[in-house]
Design a protein around this nucleic acid. Sequence first.
DNA 1: GTCAATTCACATGAAAGAGACCACGGTCTAGTG
DNA 2: CTAGACCGTGGTCTCTTTCATGTGAATTGACGA
Length: 410
Amino acid sequence: MFILWNYKKVKMGAVDEIFDSIGERSLFRNKQILQYNYNPGDILHRDEQIELIASILAPCLLGEKPSNLFIYGKTGTGKTLSIQHVAGELKKRTEGLNILRIEYLNCKLKKVADTEYRIFAELIKKLGGDVPVTGLPTDEVYRRFIDELGKMDEKLFILILDEIDQAVKKISDNFLYNLTRLNSELDNIQICVVGVSNDLRFLDMIDQRVKSSLSEEELVFPPYNALQLQDILKKRADESFKPNVVNDGVIAKCAAFAAREHGDARRALDLLRVAGELAEREANKKIRIEHIDSANNKIERDKILDIIETEPKQFQLVLHSIFLLSEKNNGAIFTGDVYMYYQELCRKVKCDILTQRRVSDILAEFDMLGLINARVISKGRQGRMREIKLAIPENIVKKSKEILVDSLGL
DNA sequence: GTCAATTCACATGAAAGAGACCACGGTCTAGTG
DNA sequence: CTAGACCGTGGTCTCTTTCATGTGAATTGACGA
């Protein structure tokens, strides 16, 4: 008993120490600034784009409907930030004037806005109405949305749809068609749609009629280059870290990493933040270059392990089959092999066996997630199939397997 | 040797079913005055 | 008489199956040199 008590006391002392020292040990002044959704006062290297957006949307200040606008750009190129910035300024200007209403909706958010029904439901909610999560016919929700619009005092409605390509990929493009047609159904209010897309080929996928009306104006956000990334990082790091925590070499390295990944500023900020956390945990006073490397590893690792952990059972079974196969023959694996192993595994854990068709889709999803590299190849008379290679780095494979074995009860 | 047809083993698409979830309106039931 | 429980209908959503069609190159076999 005494020993236990003593042990506890010592332990508690250590914990206290950690808690006490966290304040002085922390390298951060305000970590929030490095979150990607943080909105800095001014946006670097996007003046041109912001001015363009502003000039396109400016007519709304006079109560005229601006052209519909379409914005492209890879992730982390400042699209969302810029459009939100302009929207914010517009809101500021029109405050209390009742001429304009701006709503922002991210179509990628799962369970919030990834179907036509939910998008309209979410919009209705934003306008102050209320609709049930499910149970209503879609046209009913659509009708209610129009009702809600009719109730508005403002004459103009600017609708910003972020990651609109995600929505259209999942649901068909006739929801966009409905949106563009909306103006003809409303007499006292006009809608301006601002679409934001990560996918440059997005417009090729949609209907011609929608295309022409939706993209009256187009704007492309180029990726940041390494120098621009450095500027952005430097500015945010200055605000976010305590003085003398980060030196230029670290920032440069961060920027270089992110520039390699199509100039993704979000990635760069993540990298810097995680590096800071790692350095802090090691009780370092400064962030060193090595921390960037390990941060890069950690981000990658966490992302992959998180995906694997949260995947449904059937997906895990397929993935485990791939693991087993790649262990056996470290060359390429083909769809048929995976399906064979998968069936065996299902019987072992007494799980329903999905059809090959379904497994094929699951493999395609893994490819999308970056867990595997799959390439459709033709082996002539031996048929056509996916050539699969595991894309999970060597150092995470073991941990991944453990997770799978654990969750599958093997 | 050349060339078109064949053939394999899937990929890819479309449609539809199962089962979970939910709203809505009608009906039943028990509690209240 | 009325609030609340209960039920049937009809809707969405996700995961899945079924059926149908597409596909790229190794293989085959006819053909001519």
